[in-house]
Design a binder for these strands. Sequence first.
DNA 1: TATTGTTATACTCTATAACTATA
DNA 2: TATAGTTATAGAGTATAACAATA
Lengths: 166, 166
Amino acid sequence: MSDSPSLDPVQLGAYFDLIEVTSLLRHAVEQQLRESGDLSYVQFQLLARLGDSPTGSHRMTDLADGVVYSRSGLTYQAGLLEKAGLVVRAPSPDDERSVTVTITDAGRALLAKVLPGHIEVVSGLLFEPLSRDDVKTLAGLLAPVREHMRSTPPRSAAPRRRKDGA
Amino acid sequence: MSDSPSLDPVQLGAYFDLIEVTSLLRHAVEQQLRESGDLSYVQFQLLARLGDSPTGSHRMTDLADGVVYSRSGLTYQAGLLEKAGLVVRAPSPDDERSVTVTITDAGRALLAKVLPGHIEVVSGLLFEPLSRDDVKTLAGLLAPVREHMRSTPPRSAAPRRRKDGA
DNA sequence: TATTGTTATACTCTATAACTATA
DNA sequence: TATAGTTATAGAGTATAACAATA
């Protein structure tokens, strides 16, 4: 019973706007990705992540780390991407338990095809009303929040109520 | 007419952080809502919206407006909420075509039960690393973006490219 | 034993189209 | 004809648990 938690109006407004903005943005982006490349947002994220890598590869576990999913969900998505010829899976050389996912040329090509429209949507929807300084400020605010969330263990979703004792 | 669209590093960082932050936040919030009230986020949003209304009611169409969904999706969710006794549906008095959704006492009770934990998660995850001024700044940045998105027609998701017709 | 990944399965959610009824 | 909502249905996505293989 420490703090009767509540949000002041400013916090509430920021929270609601954050949810609405990203919800609308995500919706628009998903539509664009689906139309221009038949990709879901998650699939795009996975491809983009692989494309960013110098080797074009990542282990399954590393991929999962960024996209929050369950392992089975990642396996499902990786399976779809592989079936579409956009990635290849192979056992990792150093650790036989691991699977290394690698983006194919077709994957890179699709990424390149989809990216301009993606950027266009983000640019036109998210950044249009923001000045360069605004964006800098926004980035400066979000970065520490991201760090905080990353370092906060997921079970803290229900911090005061542990189920397994404690 | 392509303006060879691209995002500068600052924009890219802001965009990625925005996606990651809200993704993590949403995940945490959904978990809390599910555990404490067996509600999905959408259902919570609908309940909260009804709870905020002075009458405790909204027409289906008005509800849909805020939650972006297809009408059938809203019907589905409203059906679930009604089956759980959290809302009631009745034909609107003034327009026989419309349906008025009203939150029940049980709905309000559930809302009250779930809200503290919800706020706790948002507070601890999103606002913890932000000062009061930071939040004010964030709200000030997001509000115009929200307005811009609201006023931008959805089909603009792919503005320059009609179909896939290159 | 712990970790990595897959499979099977069940469930939730969303979208499309056809349909009813009111305006 | 246009609007409000429902239904049927199909598909995508996600999570859990059991499983196999390697460390």
